[in-house]
């Protein structure tokens, strides 16, 4: 977290300070500190159970931390609800996503971009599908499956839809929870392209086990271990970090 891009403001996009959470005797976060600059692509790695998804849940507001604060572009959002955070520009994907399985991709897309208000009770739902939304879907390769029921989609397509839904919100900070998990090699290539092509002003925080992808996409990588930040640095530094190799890369490769 040394490199500050000159064009960016000094206010971090995301600043997590002293975040702690326990479930009974199980501590999942003891003192997490994280600062992500606007426009940064940040990878978040760690072994299973390191507390990565828990951290996401706390940032997104789905889980209330026991201690600590979360600031979003300087704004303390610790007490905001999920919807308030969403409306401020915080978007996230989920590891296991089903969206609305009983309806079509098109109908799911019509549900993207909630604005905190009640949607129309009278207009047809199709009125919510504008060109912008459809081109996002097209970019992620969803055009051929628009009329498929979500329950019938392949896992990979589901992940693309998942991403399309979040990106349609035009978030300022995008939390991606293992976006590449379960994707085929070809699908990973598409995904990587899409993420690379994200507008520069979108800040990205990504949990991912695919090291190749993390190393290729990230400006900085943070390593979470046993509920604390264990290391932080550029992809090269992390790849070379002894401790990280021991706890993470070693096992991941072994």
């Amino acid at each position: 977290m040394t490199e500050v891009q000159p064009s960016m403001s000094l206010v971090p996009a995301l600043e997590v300070a002293g975040l702690a959470k326990s479930f009974g005797s199980l501590t999942v976060a003891s003192d997490v500190n994280l600062r992500v600059q606007p426009g940064e692509r940040r990878g978040l790695i760690g072994v299973n159970g390191a507390g990565k998804t828990t951290l996401f849940n706390m940032i997104a507001g789905e889980l209330k931390p026991d201690r600590g604060s979360i600031r979003f572009f300087g704004d303390d959002i610790s007490d905001d609800t999920v919807i308030q955070r969403t409306l401020k520009g915080l978007g996230r994907t989920y590891q296991v996503s089903t969206l609305v399985p009983s309806v079509t991709v098109r109908e799911n897309l019509a549900l993207a971009r909630g604005n905190g208000r009640l949607p129309s009770l009278w207009q047809p739902w199709q009125s919510r599908l504008d060109d912008d939304l459809m081109s996002t879907a097209d970019q992620l390769g969803l055009t051929p499956v628009l009329d498929e029921t979500v329950a019938n989609l392949s896992y990979g397509t589901l992940r693309q839809l998942e991403l399309a839904m979040v990106m349609a919100q035009r978030p300022r900070l995008l939390l991606l929870d293992e976006p590449a998990a379960g994707l085929s090699h070809a699908e990973r290539q598409v995904l990587q392209g899409v993420l690379r092509d994200l507008p520069q002003e979108v800040t990205l925080l990504m949990i991912e086990h695919d090291m190749e992808m993390v190393l290729a996409l990230s400006d900085q990588i943070s390593v979470l271990h046993q509920g604390e930040m264990f290391a932080e640095g550029s992809p090269d530094e992390i790849a070379a970090h002894e401790g990280v190799r021991d706890i993470y890369l070693g096992r991941a490769n072994g």
Binding site: A60, S97, S102, V103, E107, L111, P119
Partner: peptide
Amino acid sequence: LLLLGIQENEQRMRALGHP
């Protein structure tokens, strides 16, 4: 559509910004 979405994935509808 949102009502269906809430039935099947309430948390998600909230994350998408729906009340």
